[in-house]
Nucleic acid binder design. Structure first.
Lengths: 242, 242
DNA sequence: ACTGGCTCAGTGGATGAGCCACTATAGCAG
DNA sequence: CTGCTATAGTGGCTCATCCACTGAGCCAGT
């Protein structure tokens, strides 16, 4: 198997940087919920960019539910807890360059609980085709079980297949939002995939339960694996950034 | 009680319209996943807008995971199923002005299943403060049980409180993404809240289970209510748009 | 005193021309 | 065959302007 692309160097565009900065200022309470942001012209001057660029960043913030932009009025800061959607997680979990460990732990717990639910539903609805698709993904994991990075990719695929087996499209989107938080920093979690036998063994167990249509079994197998896997991811993270 | 504001007239900005149009063209397969969008200059000319405006729309699409923009290369269409996050749901469920009923049914099913999970976790982790907060929200629903619109708002608040009772912040964000799909069109679902006694009765049942710490009870009460409520929402929708 | 219309200042919406920066490719020099 | 360079195509970003919407205050008519 060919080596995967070596993760293109992260370039930070101005807009990207600007959005992060604004977001940080909002999340840190500098611009409290319910208040107006300074006018675009002033904000642009303050951050030293054009109004056009600033606007790009504002529109992106709006799409995450962090602000509401109203013609003739201004940009109003929304209550994050009340409005921000799941896609905002990927930006909230990485603040100021580092990880927000508390939120990340929270996220992984949610992943484990929801994964359990997915396993349960998947077991009760799997078709022949689903089982085959899962078997194939499992095979991929087995073949690459000694390469942490490859295994990580294979595990992700397997989990995606489990989610698809629920036949609930909304679950796939929810799952994407969660994966997106750590997907772009896969390398940071290599340490969680060094014990290849444990990973493949766990996936096999999950596969067996789903194949057998055992809802309760699949639920607990998923939840157990994801919980332990989450712990290892956290550990890997703490090793890197002391 | 005073009459609520009569829903401000929805204004559609150019960027909003443009984003919808592009999105529709992507989702409908006109620009298949993996291929490049036409160059910005050409796209702008084709849609009859400035490149600046087009860019605003593209950036928004990027934030939903529908495209990837690469300097010097172009905008590549992402595989929606693989990348689009939960916030994309609100736009996918309302295509071409009407509702995508299939996706909406799917969404409501997911809501019921996840709601069950939330109920279970909430029951196992509720604190005194949570119970009080839930009781207060329940009281609000009781007081407005004869006004469908008011009841709907109160029910939303109650469900939010249940989610908060899980003490898993990620759940709140996931929940926001789901609510966002129908939150902006609350009026369309008034029909689902006409039987005030049934709604408040159901909420009371959920409250009791959570208060008593009965995980299994809370899970099934939530799932039952949300399933039935979802059916009524669909019915209300079908009445309106034959 | 109240109503309705008008004006004005402040704010976001949108434009279009222009230049910079990045990427891939083809052709040339060694 | 290798490695450099020129070039064309694409997105990144700026700038200067004008349009459209909102809210507040003023003023004339009733």
């Amino acid at each position: 198997m060919s080596q995967d692309a070596p993760e293109p160097i992260a370039r930070t565009s101005l807009i990207e940087t600007l959005r992060k900065k604004l977001q940080e200022d909002i999340l840190s309470g500098r611009y409290p919920a319910g208040t107006s942001l300074p006018p675009e012209r002033e904000l642009a001057a303050r951050y030293g960019v054009t109004r056009t660029s600033l606007k790009h960043a504002l529109i992106e913030l709006r799409s995450f539910g962090l602000i509401a932009i109203r013609h003739g009025i201004g940009s109003i800061v929304e209550d994050v807890a009340a409005r921000a959607g799941a896609d905002a997680l990927q930006y909230m979990a990485q603040r100021e360059g580092g990880w927000d460990l508390r939120l990340f732990v929270d996220l992984l717990e949610a992943r484990a609980l929801i994964g359990g639910l997915f396993g349960r539903v998947a077991a009760s609805r799997r078709t022949e085709a689903d089982v085959e698709s899962l078997r194939e993904a499992l095979g991929g994991a087995r073949r690459t079980s000694r390469d942490p990075h490859g295994l990580q990719v294979a595990e992700n695929l397997f989990m995606r297949r489990v989610t698809e087996t629920t036949h609930v499209r909304t679950f796939v989107f929810l799952s994407n939002s969660i994966s997106a938080v750590y997907a772009r920093t896969l390398d940071a979690f290599g340490g969680a995939f060094e014990d290849g036998d444990w990973v493949t063994g766990s996936l096999e167990e999950i596969f067996d339960e789903i194949r057998d249509g055992s809802s309760a079994g699949a639920e607990s197998a998923m939840e157990r694996y994801l919980t332990e896997s989450g712990k290892r991811m956290i550990a890997a993270l703490e090793e890197q950034s002391p």
